[in-house]
Design a protein around this nucleic acid. Structure first.
Lengths: 140, 140
DNA sequence: TTCTCTGCAAACGCTTTGCACGGAT
DNA sequence: ATCCGTGCAAAGCGTTTGCAGAGAA
């Protein structure tokens, strides 16, 4: 787990060869405290504390983080990207009723894909959609 | 398997409560003969035989097919949607080298998702990315 | 100085929307 | 007469690009 302070995030970024500028630290901090926010959400929150911040800078930071493999983008339902600091393999479930996105673990390693024999698999994404328990109980 | 003639597609559309207009039949025909084409590709091919066809009509048809659940959109890599007549559960592998998208079967039913106990799952998508066998062999 | 980061404005690409025309019922 | 499908043009939206200025090394 990453230390959420400015210093903690700063050294975390340095470890990954990213110069810890203030906007980058802020973006990273928001990624840590929210679960898969959109660029818009990150911008909206960060701009409160950095009035001159531009959306371009948020995108710059996010794209840099993805290059360095410390952030992952997810596309579920909308065309708008969500960003996830958890780069381990896990699935995303989107409730079509409340729009909440849930994480869950999947073991795709276990599955063999005979059709993909000899392929090199770098990235795995599992997206499920449906209705979450809370919404199902509400509508009863 | 659907009969690829104009009549065959026409009755298939009727079965799904879709009025079989000529543009719709043409779009469906292209979906049947290509594997997950983009809207652009469908338009480019269809316009050859229907010079007055507009892209809007292609989108109208595709969106209608998706509403009626006979076509599925897939988003892998690009923001551009690909469309798939195969609505059964299967995975998509995108080769980052040649950009080809391969289908493969997955058995997600078998997997239990303890975190999603009590959830209703309507749709399942598995996206893998990496390098396909052909590209790996080429680069050796 | 040189290199990098920031941030405005504009461009981009895919998709949707508004709206009017034409054909079917 | 009403309804539905088509297709043009324009708008929409998230994201990227061009570029100039500020700041760090």
């Amino acid at each position: 787990m990453i230390d959420c302070t400015v210093e903690g995030i700063g050294s975390y970024l340095l470890e990954h060869n990213i110069k810890p500028s203030y906007p980058r630290i802020k973006v990273m901090q928001i990624l840590l405290q929210r679960t898969h926010p959109t660029a818009e959400e990150i911008y909206a929150q960060a701009v409160k504390e950095m009035p001159t911040l531009s959306k371009t800078t948020v995108y710059n930071a996010l794209n840099l983080f993805m290059e360095k493999n410390i952030v992952h983008s997810i596309y579920i339902g909308e065309t708008e990207a969500k960003y996830d600091i958890d780069t381990s393999i896990h699935g995303h479930f989107k409730c079509e009723c409340c729009n909440k996105v849930y994480d869950f673990s999947v073991d795709l390693e276990e599955q063999s894909f005979p059709e993909l024999h000899g392929f090199f698999i770098r990235e795995r994404d599992v997206y499920l959609k449906g209705t979450c328990k809370a919404c199902l109980e509400k509508s009863e």
